[in-house]
């Protein structure tokens, strides 16, 4: 199983480095371990995150692509769908079978067909349009809904900080 994962991840890495996709860059965190990737995401233009460079660690399971990787921001980020410890909470990264109530539609859930690229695009889209219905960071969600000004200030602080760390 893990052999297949290694092959697949190497292939995806090659593709991402050969033809980079706008909005993010990716590479191995440690050259000897293909299961841990460092990704950096550019705050999408025309959003409050514009100008920020957010780093995240992407960890793949041994049975990838049957199960999704986890993505954790290592940069500070204030967002309703990111846990305070940096873990990203979006439906396509939920391990299959984790949604017994059928709350998420099938097309929004993990499928082995997803790649690093589709995951990154989902995260970028998450930055542009937060989903406050099932928030990971409740305070951020509340602020996003009720106190946009304070929310904007906190995000701006994260953006500034990420620029300083460049």
């Amino acid at each position: 199983m893990s052999e297949q994962a290694v092959l697949l991840l190497r292939k995806q890495l090659k593709e991402v480095t050969r033809c980079p996709v706008e909005g993010f860059s990716a590479g191995l965190a440690d050259d000897s371990n293909v299961f841990e990737w460092n990704v950096s995401i550019m705050g999408p233009p025309d959003t409050q995150y514009e100008g920020g460079f957010f780093n995240a660690l992407m960890t793949f399971p041994q049975d990838y692509p049957n199960n999704p990787p986890t993505v954790r921001f290592t940069s500070d980020i204030w967002h309703p769908n990111v846990y305070p410890d940096g873990r990203v909470c979006i439906s396509i990264l939920h391990a299959p079978g984790n949604d017994p109530n059928g709350y998420e539609k099938a097309c929004e859930r993990w499928s082995p067909i997803h790649t690093v690229e589709t995951i990154m695009l989902s995260i970028i889209s998450m930055l542009s349009s937060p989903n406050d219905e099932s928030p990971a960071n409740i305070d951020a969600a509340k602020e996003w809904r009720e106190d946009k000004e304070e929310y904007r200030r906190k995000v701006a602080r994260c953006v500034r900080k990420s620029q300083e760390n460049l």
Binding site: N66, G97, C107, E108, I113
Partner: peptide
């Protein structure tokens, strides 16, 4: 891949398995 995909879904007790393509129902 089909086999792996289906086995995983069965293992999870899924009785309505849909095509792996996310946009397909």
């Amino acid at each position: 891949c089909w086999k792996r995909f289906l086995s995983l879904k069965v293992e999870e007790g899924e009785t309505r398995i849909v095509c792996p393509e996310p946009s397909c129902s």
